[in-house]
Amino acid sequence: MSAKEQKLDKNNKSLNIAKLYRLLTISEDLHEITGVPPTTDLEYVYVKDIPEDENYEIVRVGSGKFQYQILYSQIAYEYIEFLKDVMVPYANRTMSNEIEFMNIILKSGEYLILEGDEDKVSLPIPEGIGVAHTHPGICLFSHKDIETADNTFIKGYVINSVLNPHCISSIFRKGAYTLDDRENLLSLAKSVKKAKTMDSLVSAYKKFSSENLVFEYKNI
């Protein structure tokens, strides 16, 4: 696709999402290195001992209020709130002309908005944290959207969303993306592709279950 409208920007919410993602990736690293899950207060990561030769500026010795896994859902929550602020005007445009827009939050805290084509927006996905696109109809993932979500989770993304002016659907991680999670997600893609009615489509999403993935639908 040839992106017609492009925007690169940042705001307090996108920068905060990047900060939370930094806490998450450091926590994952420390958990893997030490075998002991860190904790967090959403500002710092806390461990009993900082490993030798590791220099993390946002790691403290001690104990935080939360297990670090809360960062997955916190990033998802913050991203959905970000989409409500930033992407709803683009969703309104999609409803009027069926031209879709994509949003990506990069690890730097900057965000991209890219205009696609009628009923389609696609491009090579860079490394990032969250990705969403607008839909002219229902805010549910198509089977191709779910296959793209698989690709982004492999790249380390936390959340994928689809929105229109009235609702947002999201699939987000609550842990490491495993082979079982991938199998369950791609099975959902197959069920969505086979669905011929709205009832069968909704049923496919209701039946979806995976250890480290969550599907969530929210009204705006």
Rank of each mutant, 00 (worst) to 15 (best):
Y56F: 15
L106Y: 14
L114R: 07
K65R: 09
F141P: 08
A91S: 09
G137T: 14
F153E: 00
A91C: 06
D29V: 08
L15Y: 07
I26C: 06
S63Y: 11
E147N: 12
K207V: 14
L23N: 10
V202Q: 01
G116W: 10
C167G: 12
I138N: 07
Y72E: 10
T40H: 03
N184I: 00
G156T: 01
P165F: 11
F208G: 08
V86F: 09
L83P: 10
N55I: 15
I146G: 07
Y177M: 03
E81K: 11
S73W: 00
L15P: 04
F208H: 07
L83F: 11
E78R: 02
P124D: 13
Q6G: 09
G130V: 10
K10Q: 07
I159P: 10
P89W: 12
I58V: 13
K4I: 14
R60L: 15
N92K: 08
F153K: 01
L114S: 10
N212S: 13
E100R: 02
L8N: 09
D49I: 14
K155D: 11
D29C: 07
P51Y: 01
G35H: 02
S122P: 00
F208D: 05
F172C: 03
I171D: 04
I26W: 03
P136Y: 12
I159R: 02
A91T: 05
Y21W: 14
S14R: 01
R60A: 06
K19V: 00
I159E: 10
I125F: 14
L15Q: 13
H133Q: 00
Y111E: 02
T178K: 01
P136N: 09
P89C: 12
I129E: 08
F153I: 00
V61I: 15
T40M: 06
P37N: 05
E81R: 08
G109P: 05
Y79F: 15
V45W: 04
D117Q: 08
I99M: 00
S169A: 15
G137H: 11
I26N: 04
S14H: 04
H143C: 04
Y111F: 15
F172V: 02
R173H: 02
M102G: 13
E57M: 09
D180R: 08
S200T: 14
R22G: 14
I80P: 03
D117L: 08
K218P: 00
A3S: 12
E5H: 08
K206Q: 09
K48T: 11
Q6Y: 15
I80C: 07
V202T: 07
K194A: 15
S27W: 07
N219G: 03
G62R: 01
I80H: 04
D119R: 10
L185I: 08
T39F: 02
K4F: 14
E211S: 12
L112R: 06
A204D: 04
D181K: 01
F215P: 01
N103Y: 15
L20Q: 06
L163I: 12
F66Y: 15
Y56N: 05
N92I: 14
C167Q: 13
V47Q: 03
V192R: 00
N103H: 13
I154A: 05
L112M: 13
N219E: 13
I58Y: 14
K120W: 11
G137W: 01
P38V: 00
F141W: 10
Y77T: 02
S161V: 01
V36L: 06
Y79S: 11
Q74L: 10
L42S: 07
Y72A: 11
V45F: 00
P136T: 09
L71C: 11
E216F: 10
E57N: 11
H143P: 07
M1E: 11
N55M: 12
